[in-house]
């Protein structure tokens, strides 16, 4: 594990706005995410989940406000401490599964070869297959291996279950839970599949129109609303 800041906060966002040409993607986000937790980032399409995750990963920058990840602003060096899984297919289709993992592993000193092999076996992927010949579910599993085979303080997963069949979804959730390094790692996961992913979450953030509607622990929310997070979703976005 790379050296990490000793404060209890992994992500600190203050007054962040993000404006595109005709759209305000994020509107005054103030957020603190503590270390060692799995946080669910929930919200309908266009609520700002992907924008927020990209900002934390250092792919885009806020129009105004500050964002600190593990005590520093997201930059090239910070990317060593972050594993980011984008929603869209971003792998090179002409590479094989093995070549893809070898390519990605070359950039990270925290890459765990044994873990990658175990995950490859657990996800039932043939390393000789080209990425272009993999189904969407298999590509999702490959992306997840690329994220979870690293020993990093922060893992950002943007819609890891998008377009995935239930069997693959269950495998992915199982892998996330089993590979989670409590006290050493923070996982931030955005999803629409609240029902399946609910058991994972320590904290939950509900986003709407670029603003945070609710941010609390999953347990508090369930006792406050007296129902599951899936039902809370329906109440929040009704």
């Amino acid at each position: 594990m790379t050296a990490i800041d000793q404060s209890p906060t992994m992500i600190e966002i203050k007054g962040v706005h993000k404006r595109y040409l005709l759209k305000q993607a994020l509107n005054g986000i103030d957020l603190q995410i503590k270390k060692g937790s799995i946080v669910g980032l929930l919200g309908p399409n266009g609520s700002g989940k992907s924008t927020l995750l990209k900002m934390m990963a250092g792919l885009i920058y806020p129009t105004s406000g500050t964002i600190l990840v593990n005590g520093r602003e997201p930059d090239v060096r910070n990317k060593q401490q972050i594993a980011y899984l984008p929603e869209i297919d971003s792998l090179y289709s002409w590479m094989t599964v093995k070549e893809t993992l070898q390519f990605i592993s070359a950039f990270y000193s925290d890459w765990q070869v044994d873990k990658a092999s175990l995950l490859l076996h657990a996800m039932e992927l043939d390393e000789r297959q080209k990425v272009r010949n993999l189904s969407k579910g298999m590509r999702a599993r490959l992306k997840l291996i690329a994220a979870l085979a690293r020993k990093v303080p922060l893992v950002l997963l943007d819609e890891p279950f998008s377009g995935i069949d239930p069997m693959s979804r269950a495998k992915i959730i199982h892998s996330i839970i089993s590979e989670f390094q409590a006290d050493e790692q923070t996982i931030l996961l955005s999803t629409h599949s609240v029902k399946e992913s609910e058991p994972m979450f320590d904290d939950v953030i509900f986003l709407q129109n670029g603003r945070i509607k609710i941010h609390d622990s999953a347990e508090n929310l369930r006792s406050e609303f007296g129902c599951s997070l899936e039902n809370i979703w329906e109440k929040v976005y009704a």
């Binding site: 990963a57 250092g58 792919l59 090239v76 060096r77 910070n78 990317k79 060593q80 972050i82 980011y84 984008p86 869209i88 297919d89 971003s90 792998l91 090179y92 289709s93 990605i104 950039f107 990270y108």
Partner: peptide, 14 residues
């Protein structure tokens, strides 16, 4: 076009 730019931008490379 292939969105592999996401992968490139997330790498810790200048």
């Amino acid at each position: 076009r292939t969105n592999s730019i996401y992968l490139l931008l997330s790498l810790p490379v200048r």
